[in-house]
Design a protein around this nucleic acid. Structure first.
Lengths: 336, 336
DNA sequence: GTGAAAGCGCTAACAA
DNA sequence: TTGTTAGCGCTTTCAC
């Protein structure tokens, strides 16, 4: 069933070398030889053995994408784009899920069970920069959304502070004054939430509003359940609130769900802004205003970083900190 | 940086063979030797070269998952589960997106470009069984959701006809008589929609209701946009309707969105049932009744099929047609 | 323009 | 119990 170069060579009556040249298109081959070889190739239905090529090349043609989970909308959209973009560069993506588990992240960085990928794009969750730095090994790394540990690797992300500032300023511009921040995660060593909180606070301060701890809500994860729970708690405690800035769209959707159940009018009683620009947000009820990172650029730039490191390890550019654009997509959940 | 077996052997003062035995845990090694070797292993931070192992073993340890798209909820949930399940069997999953393109599906089956997987799990969309059969090649195949072409490969799916029947019967039991079927795809050679339509029709007939062509709506894809458009058209045409059975949850969510905009009460004016059991459905407004396939079993069984074919190609069991369970999850969109 | 052969890192058959 | 060595299939240097 599977034929080797050797078989094709035998059938065509030439050497292995010549067949290899025809297959790869490299080297010079006389026209009549190449026709003959091509015929043999077709007859045997030859397909190159990837393992052998990889061994020879010292590469696998595989890159890893490590994300907390594949089933959440933000990451599945990102993964889909990455798979596509990688394909154009003849790379194949293998996806690993860490489920926010520190050990899983560590294991991944150490290169589980064998050197398999040529590079790794990782969206850290539980690990701190220090931890990450301590375990990074061998393969080129690109961090998504988290500052690179001590300039150890490239990093691609939106600028969280101004993005959060922008979202909050939008709410302030609508006359809201009691704006809740949903999504703090002080227990994590991942700094994304911290940065968004920073932007939120900055905007409030600029508007002359003192941040109110009662309006800042911690969550365990960024899922809808958590947004729902946080919003419920807020309302149960009787905290006065006229807007919500959620650190993820899923949190925002959960909050929206809760607000509906309580009979609040959106955006009349409560304006809501999310973060991530997931497709769901457009279909929310009402459609959700959200900070949209340019996901295509995130994947493109991350791959570019990897390509540079993998193919030109010699030209050791210092680790890059790449900021991709974002924009605030204003929809009915704030401007009804 | 990367050390080979040879380097470890040199450092430990033993032969390659012995190191290999220690690494793989096979063969007999004297305790004091293994301690010595292990020390060398640790010191050099040895990790096996996957490409070399694969070449040797004649396997890649990779399995492919070919789905129309990764960003839609159903497929990302499925992919997430598969990645997890595969990990437990020491397999790595590479994901390919076909975007419902017939050529992409064909190319995948032919195993283009040289990246060779040990097996392929494919969720066909555009290709007919005949086409699939014509292009299947070499690697073990498992079809998801579509009958295997001429018993050529294993297939794992829910039983669409009874599932659709059940959903429709549920609506009939609520006294609905003008039940729309949303999601016909006569242009595709993929039989899923046809089977769901069959179940729908059967349930109607059993209730003494003649299917009304005006209630059967064709869609291009299974996305929310299509559900929204189909529902809009239905209402615009003034077709009398008191329930919708959508062939996917996304279609149902789109229809729901449209119904809301038109001011219909759910389920008072319109009861809605979806299909797929995506997480979103729970968070819809109101929560969506849906047919839930056991996704975990789908991935488990598919992997089991692959494992059987890959590891015991000799014991040629005839292609299996595996039916996984489903259940109708009744929520507020039908029983308010 | 084409052939012969080395060697990528690993496993396992064969020796000792 | 451990060492030696022949390939797995491919690319590529060196010779012709």
């Amino acid at each position: 069933m599977t034929s080797r170069l050797k078989d094709v060579a035998a059938l065509a009556g030439v050497s292995i070398r010549t067949v290899s040249n025809v297959v790869s298109g490299s080297g010079a081959v006389a026209e009549h030889t190449r026709v003959k070889v091509q015929a043999a190739l077709d007859e045997l239905g030859y397909r190159p053995n990837a393992a052998a090529r990889n061994l020879r090349a010292g590469r696998t043609g595989l890159i890893g994408l490590a994300i907390p989970e594949l089933h959440s909308p933000y990451f599945s959209e990102l993964a889909g784009l990455l798979v596509q973009a990688a394909q154009q560069r003849s790379w194949t993506v293998v996806i690993d899920q860490t489920f926010g588990d520190a050990d899983a992240e560590r294991r991944l960085l150490e290169g589980t069970g064998g050197r398999v990928v040529d590079g790794l794009i990782i969206s850290p969750w539980a690990l701190s920069p220090e931890d990450l730095a301590a375990h990074a090994r061998g393969v080129p790394l690109v961090f998504l959304g988290e500052r690179s540990p001590g300039g150890l690797a490239d990093r691609v992300a939106v600028d969280n502070v101004p993005a959060a500032d922008e979202a909050t300023t939008h709410l302030l511009g609508l006359g809201r004054r009691r704006i809740a921040a949903l999504g703090l995660q002080p227990h994590l060593h991942n700094g994304t939430a911290r940065q968004r909180h920073e932007g939120y606070t900055a905007a409030l301060r600029r508007a002359g509003i003192a941040p109110d701890p009662a309006l800042e809500r911690t969550v365990a994860t960024l899922h809808r359940e958590d947004g729902y729970a946080a919003m419920s708690a807020l309302l149960d405690e009787g905290v006065e609130v006229d807007a919500v800035f959620a650190f993820s769209d899923e949190l925002a959707l959960g909050a929206l769900h809760c607000a509906h159940q309580r009979g609040l009018r959106i955006p009349g009683d409560l304006a809501v802004v999310g973060f991530d620009g997931i497709d769901n947000a457009r279909w929310a009820h009402p459609a959700l205003t959200t900070v949209v990172p340019d996901k295509r650029q995130i994947t493109e730039r991350a791959l570019q970083c990897l390509a540079d490191r993998i193919y030109s390890p010699a030209s050791a550019v210092p680790p890059q900190d790449i900021v991709v654009p974002h924009h605030l997509e204003i929809r009915a959940s704030t401007v009804g």
